[in-house]
Amino acid sequence: MLKLSNISMEFGALKTLNDLSIELKEKEIVSVIGPNGAGKTTLFNVITGLYKPTSGSVKLGSQEMLGLSPAEINRAGIARTFQNVRLFLNMSVLENVMSATFGRTRSGLFSSALGLKRSRKEEAEVKEKAQELLKFFGTRLTGYRWDQPAFSLSYANRRRLEIARALATDPKVLLLDEPAAGMNPKETQEITEIVGSLRAERGLTILIIEHDMHVVEGVSDRVVALDYGVKIAEGDFDHVATHPDVVEAYLGKGSTATK
């Protein structure tokens, strides 16, 4: 489904990603782990078209993503969330989700201004779709919440809203950047379940960056470990977690790891 081949990303003399190749099959859930500065978010930025890599290729199915604008990449089927939750803070919860349907809708300036039937119909559909997506998270983001500005949400709710917003773009591949960061155990458990159901119910292929090993363990089919922009291990969770290079990257030389 998603194939990254020999991605290298250089910022001047700094090589953030070094000949990286990762492949995701359809409906796979893969976690990317690694110490801070390993290049994980940079990887996401390359995939979504925010950075242009120095070399390599990103293929969604058979379509090359490199060179497309972020909006085009999104419309091709790749969506993401952000490490530091970038919502449209001054817009309402519902509007945040509705706004992401832009790439899938067509009402232009004139048809909206004139109030044409197809415009109205599309608007109603968009609203309904957004409401459905928000119901996915239970009752927290429903009801009167829809019209609340996004900045009024608690941290956990903001993360959930961000996922809902990404889902509104009808993606095939979902990139989640540290979805469980800053969450308490109960919320973390929820996120794990949500990621699972995103694959089960919606057939998404998911790439997750995570630090919380409980999430990684509970969710991943495969784990990829990065350090200094290089893949240092790949495999199932047990294999990677006990891999000597991974342990060294996280804990330093001479450490051993147990679960």
Binding site: F88, L89, E95, F102, S112
Partner: peptide, 24 residues
């Protein structure tokens, strides 16, 4: 509606807006 929302997302955070499919 759609265009107005797109405008507002561009005002809020143009980069994210683009990643969410809006041709900024």
């Amino acid at each position: 509606t759609r265009i107005g929302r797109a405008w507002r997302t561009v005002r809020e955070d143009a980069l994210v807006s683009e990643v969410m499919g809006v041709s900024v």
